[in-house]
């Protein structure tokens, strides 16, 4: 069936099978491979993207369920070639090693900061508790998100400099 949705601000129409999962739609049909496909059981959280502004595990959403809605993936974080403070934070604080969980972590982090610009460490850990990282022990991910919180707004010039 034909679906029309907005992906990272761009309207897209495609023909898909109803059983196609959203994670495979963005990766295989749209070529947006920044969203990773991990456990396939809504546990690991590497497939997290935004559906109508809310983070969801896209291995447990059908592509057809996104018809008429908006999707934002990790590719939609940067603006005009400038990294989002969350992306910059992961760079500054070494928030990744293998990078597999990173896209999902960043999408959750952006959503958290949009709703709670100055989260405590506990709030950050709660927000990412549905996502698994096997490299960092989470310590640097938490630091990266704190970095983004401290460098949002004023920091954007700094990042650009």
């Amino acid at each position: 069936m034909q679906i029309t949705l907005t992906v990272n601000g761009e309207q897209i129409t495609r023909d898909v099978e109803p059983r196609l999962l959203l994670v495979h739609f963005v990766r295989d049909h749209l070529g947006l491979t920044g969203t990773h496909w991990g456990c396939d059981t809504s546990n690991c959280g590497t497939c997290v993207l935004w559906l109508d502004g809310t983070p969801v595990k896209s291995c447990t959403v059908l592509a057809v369920m996104a018809d008429g809605r908006s999707v934002r993936t990790v590719e939609g974080l940067e603006r005009d070639g400038e990294l989002d403070p969350v992306q910059q934070g992961f760079f500054e604080e070494h928030g990744l090693q293998c990078g597999f969980c990173t896209p999902g972590m960043m999408m959750t982090a952006r959503h958290l900061l949009d709703h709670n610009p100055d989260p405590s460490e506990a709030e950050i850990r709660e927000a990412i508790s549905g996502q698994i990282c096997r490299c960092t022990g989470y310590e640097n991910i938490v630091k990266a998100i704190r970095w983004a919180a401290e460098h949002s707004g004023a920091a954007e010039e700094e990042v650009g400099a």
Partner: peptide, 9 residues
Amino acid sequence: IADPIVRNR
């Protein structure tokens, strides 16, 4: 119940 992302859905 589950985790914050699953609870969104």
